[in-house]
């Protein structure tokens, strides 16, 4: 097999907005079959980067490509093949979990009901209750199901385990592992074992769930213009290859 294809490539991505925060000149590559951890202190611009990849924000400068789709020009096709879990998840409160997932599935052109029912069962999620009556953790589970249910080729997860209890976090990690390794999920026809995966965690989430230990030498600092109150560093960790049970092998990258 040839080297894995590039799943995600950002080149010189820059976003300034207001005088608040943003990112400047961010370049990175994620290969298919890779779990990529994107770490940084609060306000470093992790979410901004993610929201630019999804087309929610327009880059001030730079380019990005996901699976060959340009993040600006081919945003809709990109999103058809991406599963996204927002960091600050907000759902339609008045719907039941099942109605909500059915709506999302229809907007995606139809995902077999069996898929999200199965995922919900794995995460012990009761789909018959209204979203507004669910705890934060259970809402987060709906977000996880919504991100995984259409077997996307790229998963973009912003603090995916926040609000989940430790047992569900473990189940979530198994889900990620299976997805990347093409395990249980490969029987779904669109999966075909060619998963690539980018997981974006906040500092704390990745510390606890991925056993990633940042060393001082991997910590880069670069001056950033017009980003006043935000911290001046961010750090990219690349988890090369499929994550293992004992912990995830870490290859640090820079941004």
């Amino acid at each position: 097999m040839d080297g894995p294809a590039t799943a995600l490539r950002l080149q010189g991505l820059t976003k300034f907005y207001g005088s608040q925060r943003g990112i400047e000149d961010l370049s990175l590559d994620v290969k298919t079959g890779e779990v990529f951890g994107f770490l940084g202190p609060n306000g470093a611009g992790k979410t901004t980067t993610i929201r630019m990849i999804l087309g929610l924000l327009h880059p001030t400068d730079g380019t990005g490509e996901v699976l060959g789709f340009d993040i600006v020009k081919d945003s809709v096709a990109l999103r058809a093949n991406t599963g996204y879990l927002p960091g600050d998840l907000a759902l339609y409160d008045r719907m039941t979990g099942r109605d909500l997932l059915e709506f999302l599935s229809r907007m995606r052109g139809g995902v077999p009901r069996q898929r999200y029912e199965e995922l919900a069962e794995r995460l012990h999620l009761d789909l018959s209750r209204r979203v507004k009556d669910l705890s934060r953790g259970n809402r987060q589970k709906i977000g996880v199901v919504a991100a995984f249910m259409h077997s996307p080729q790229l998963l973009v997860l912003d603090e995916p385990t926040s609000g989940l209890d430790p047992l569900v976090q473990q189940e979530f990690q198994r889900l990620v592992r299976e997805t990347v390794e093409g395990g249980a999920w490969s029987r779904w026809p669109t999966g075909s074992g060619s998963w690539c995966m980018a997981a974006w965690w906040s500092w704390t989430a990745s510390m606890s769930c991925a056993n990633a230990r940042p060393g001082a030498s991997n910590w880069t600092s670069r001056p950033r213009r017009r980003i006043s109150p935000a911290p001046r560093e961010c750090n990219v960790w690349k988890f090369a290859g499929p994550p293992r049970r004992a912990g995830l092998p870490v290859r640090p990258g820079l941004c």
């Binding site: 999804l54 929610l56 809709v76 999103r79 927002p86 998840l89 907000a90 999302l104």
Partner: peptide
């Protein structure tokens, strides 16, 4: 905040 979910779907 639901725009994030809606606009992350493959809908222009």
């Amino acid at each position: 905040g639901t725009a994030d979910v809606l606009l992350s779907l493959p809908v222009s």
